[in-house]
Amino acid sequence: MATTPRIGVVTFPGSLDDRDAARAVRAAGAEAVPLWHGDAELRGVDAVVLPGGFSYGDYLRAGAIARFSPVVNEIVSAASRGLPVLGICNGFQVLCESGLLPGALIRNAGLHFVCRDQRLRVESVTTRWTSDYDEGAEIVIPVKHGEGRYVADQATVDALEADGRVAVRYLDNPNGATNDIAGIRNESGNVVGLMPHPEHAIDPLTGPSTDGLTMFGSVLGALVSA
């Protein structure tokens, strides 16, 4: 009998979506383990979610201060050993600032904060967080951000495209992101960051779809079969 997988959800000062992320983790069938930004330990979790919000008030740059928090130091070293890590919105920004993922998220083209149900295409299913999707699947997940425009130097973008490391792509780009990139993965596929919010699309009562639940279910499948 397999034990229930434990997925950590980090709370920074200014996190907003940690409760929804924990709810999504439970809906997928795992135990949600709260992780505090100031704690230099991961409590033995099997995977980690960095949720959306405005960690440390987005001071300096979104994610720039959170990157230096004790818990993120632990996550960076654990990710290099294969721990599955999902960064959502502000969590994606933290992953880019920490160097776990390349590039950066900057102010939306047009400057407007965008909040809407967003159509996406799943481009890479060889990650710990997208393995249960069909490759090329079109899904609907909310976006809500002012600084979600993915940019990187041309060599990095070319490498992402050549290696299939674009995880999800916008079908109608809300922020001017390079190559319509909504989310990317690292080389080994355990780290995924994306601007849209899968935790807000797990229940037809409160979201536009249940497409986001598959992301949390994907990592569980890998953990249970491991």
């Binding site: 300096l60 740059r61 720039a64 230096f68 880019c96 600032e97 390349p102 590039g103 950066a104 900057i106 940019v151 990187a152 130097d153």
Partner: peptide, 8 residues
């Protein structure tokens, strides 16, 4: 280390 992000 902090004030600038060399990616951008």
């Amino acid at each position: 280390a902090l004030l600038a992000n060399p990616a951008i």
